[in-house]
Every structure is written in C-alpha cells, then in structure tokens.
Amino acid sequence: MAVVFYARVSSADQTIEHQCQHAEAAGFKIDRVVADHGVSGISTHLADRPEGKRLFDILRSGDTLLVRWIDRLGRNYGDVCDTIRQFMRQGIVIRTVINGLVFDGATKDPMQQAVRDALIAFMAATAQANAEALKEAQRSGIALARSTDGGNKYRGRKPSFSKEQFSTVCEMLELSAGIGKIASATGLSRQAIYRIRDDRAAAVGALTRWEG
C-alpha cells in the first residue's frame, strides 16, 4: 500500500519541495510524488491536468493519496467532491497534511457517512469560495494600485506571506483553527496571521501590488 503525495503549484511563490518538506515534517512517509506546475485549480479539473490525471492510473485500492490541503486537488466545488468520492469508491484513502483530515469509504454507518460527506462538501466549498474571494481581492488590489499616488507604482511594504500561505491561513480560519496551529502550519508569525484575519482584502491587495 503506497502513499502518493500530490502537489500542485500555480505561481512562482509556491514550490513542490516546500509542500513535500511540510508533509515529511508532519510525520508522513511518502513513496511517490506526483506534481503539476503552473496549473490553476479553478479552471482545470484534476483529471485534465498533465500529472493529476495520472493519479487515476497510479492509485490502487488500499493506497493513500496525500495532499497538503484539499485545495491542491482543486478549487472547483463539483470537481473536488466528485474526485474524492471516486477515489473512495476505489478503496483509496485521502489524507491532508494540514489538520490530518482523513476521507475513506470504510464506514458503512449511514450517519457517519453523512457526516463525512458533509465535511467533504464543506471543504470543497471553502476551497472554491476562497479562490473566488482571492480573485475579487486581486481586482480590488489592482484598482487600488492604479489609483494610489496618482498612478505611480508605489507598492508599500512587501507582504511577509506568499499567496500559498495566505490561502492556507484563510482556509484554516474557516475551520476555526487556532492562531498557534495556523502559525505552525504556515511558518508565519501570529502578527501576520492576525493581519490576514482582520483584513483579507488588504492582505491580498498587497500581494497583488507586489506581483509587479
């Protein structure tokens, strides 16, 4: 039974190595890494990605599909839900590095199945909602950057967090994770997490302005 780690990076400030190191530091032993570079989780379904589609051929019953967070599978509600359920039907266990979530088809109890399915739906919805919020905040950030200082390229102070870290913070906040736990998962200071929590639009606006 193999542990296959799937990583997806969509921008230059994300790295496969960082995601693997985070998984290993959390105690996971990885047998194989499958990764997609520069691929959007919003517009491209897992089965349509160059490497993501290989998972459906590689994984076998009893294997574990490990991801840093559900959003690595995608940021489209329907696609994420369908993907997880398909893997579970094949006897594959899906685990997340952050929060140690486990999704499998082992339980036959209808109440436990209902709770599991509700959590899958919630996680998928959170991934899509955060992606949409990020896009809206990016638009606001671009508009602000253009209007600031008469159109000059004043970008302000460089953010201490990346888009990947920002996304993780938002998703863990949605799950009511504590600030200390978020800091441990992301490597950010408590102050940075508080700033993101208190004004997400301003945080992602700053990220957008520093993209140049």
Rank of each mutant, 00 (worst) to 15 (best):
E136D: 06
G62C: 06
E164G: 15
V93N: 02
F122R: 11
D48A: 09
D48W: 01
S147E: 13
E171F: 03
A133E: 12
M123S: 11
G180M: 11
V93F: 06
S189Q: 05
R209D: 06
K181L: 09
Y194K: 13
M172E: 10
D71K: 05
G78D: 12
A185W: 12
I42D: 00
N130G: 07
E211L: 11
F103K: 07
F5G: 09
R195W: 00
F161T: 09
S10I: 00
N152C: 00
E174C: 13
A35Y: 08
G74D: 09
I58R: 01
D82L: 11
V204R: 01
L65H: 10
I182T: 12
A143R: 08
G74T: 06
M1E: 04
Q112R: 11
V33R: 01
A106N: 05
Y77Q: 12
V97D: 01
Q191M: 11
T83G: 05
V9T: 15
S140K: 00
R139M: 13
Q138N: 07
H45W: 13
L73S: 03
Q138G: 01
Q191H: 12
K53L: 12
G141K: 05
R8Q: 15
R195C: 00
A26E: 15
G78P: 00
R32K: 14
R49C: 08
S189W: 04
A201G: 02
A129W: 11
G141H: 02
C20V: 15
A206H: 00
Q112D: 12
A121F: 03
A129L: 14
E132S: 14
S167V: 05
V3E: 04
M111K: 07
Q86N: 08
Q128W: 08
A106G: 00
M111A: 02
Q128H: 04
S40H: 10
A23W: 08
I94N: 11
D79E: 06
T107G: 09
A12P: 05
G156I: 05
D199W: 06
K158M: 10
Q113F: 08
G141Q: 01
R139Y: 13
Q19R: 05
G151P: 07
V33A: 04
C170R: 14
C81M: 14
Q90Y: 14
C81K: 14
R95Q: 15
D31S: 07
R157A: 03
I92V: 15
C20Q: 15
I92Q: 09
G178T: 15
A23L: 03
A203F: 02
T208H: 11
P110D: 01
S10L: 02
Q21T: 12
R157I: 06
Q191S: 15
D63P: 00
Q128A: 10
F28A: 08
K29L: 14
S40N: 09
A124S: 05
I196A: 03
E164C: 09
M88D: 11
E51L: 07
A23Q: 06
L101N: 07
A131I: 01
N99W: 10
S61R: 03
R68I: 05
C170P: 09
W69A: 15
D109T: 06
